[in-house]
């Protein structure tokens, strides 16, 4: 566990860092319920490309979001070595497909830098800041927009 020197323990929060391709990201650990290995998902017809399907999570139907595809990268080719981060978004529980989990970080707000001003859709929609840890750049992402919008009811 990498610990950053903290100025004030009370304002620190824990983040889970993971890898997608060559990049690293992290999310607030409060939204993470568990980490699982990859199991083949049942495809959902007529769904966006980043929705890989659904799997059985102890009796509940869990949608699996290919986070690489969602963030605008090439879709993942999942293998047994891939990881599913089971996260809670509002009152839904979803699975995020990533390459691997790399770290658990404890950071304070002052360590989160503003998102670099680049012309990237992904950056604008999902990134809430970046962290510099041991010369790595880890982007903090917010999960609110990860799920596809509810389908408008066709007449």
């Amino acid at each position: 566990m990498t610990e950053i020197t903290r100025t004030d323990l009370a304002s620190a929060r824990e983040l889970i860092a993971f890898r997608i391709g060559a990049q690293e990201f992290c999310v607030d650990i409060m939204s993470v319920r568990e980490i699982r290995g990859w199991t083949p998902a049942t495809a959902l017809p007529q769904s966006p490309g980043f929705v890989r399907g659904v799997v059985n999570l102890r009796g509940a139907v869990l949608p699996i979001i290919d986070l690489a595809a969602r963030l605008g990268f090439a879709p993942a080719e999942p293998t047994a070595r891939h990881v599913i981060i089971v996260a809670q978004i509002d009152n839904r529980v979803v699975g995020l497909l990533v390459d691997a989990v790399s770290d658990i970080l404890t950071v304070t707000d002052d360590l989160v830098q503003a998102t670099p001003d680049v012309a990237s859709e992904m950056a604008k929609t999902f990134v809430r800041g970046v962290l510099a840890i041991e010369r790595r750049m880890i982007s903090l992402i917010a999960l609110d927009h990860v799920l596809p919008a509810p389908e408008r009811d066709a007449a």
Binding site: T42, S47, N56, G59, A60, V61, R92, L147, A154
Partner: peptide, 25 residues
């Protein structure tokens, strides 16, 4: 099992279930 609970309505699909092999159908 509801699809809407964690995801949303899928056209042509009423709901989901879990078969004997543990997979979602």
């Amino acid at each position: 099992k509801s699809l809407e609970a964690n995801y949303r309505h899928v056209p042509g699909i009423a709901a989901a279930t879990i078969l004997g092999d543990g997979r979602v159908a």
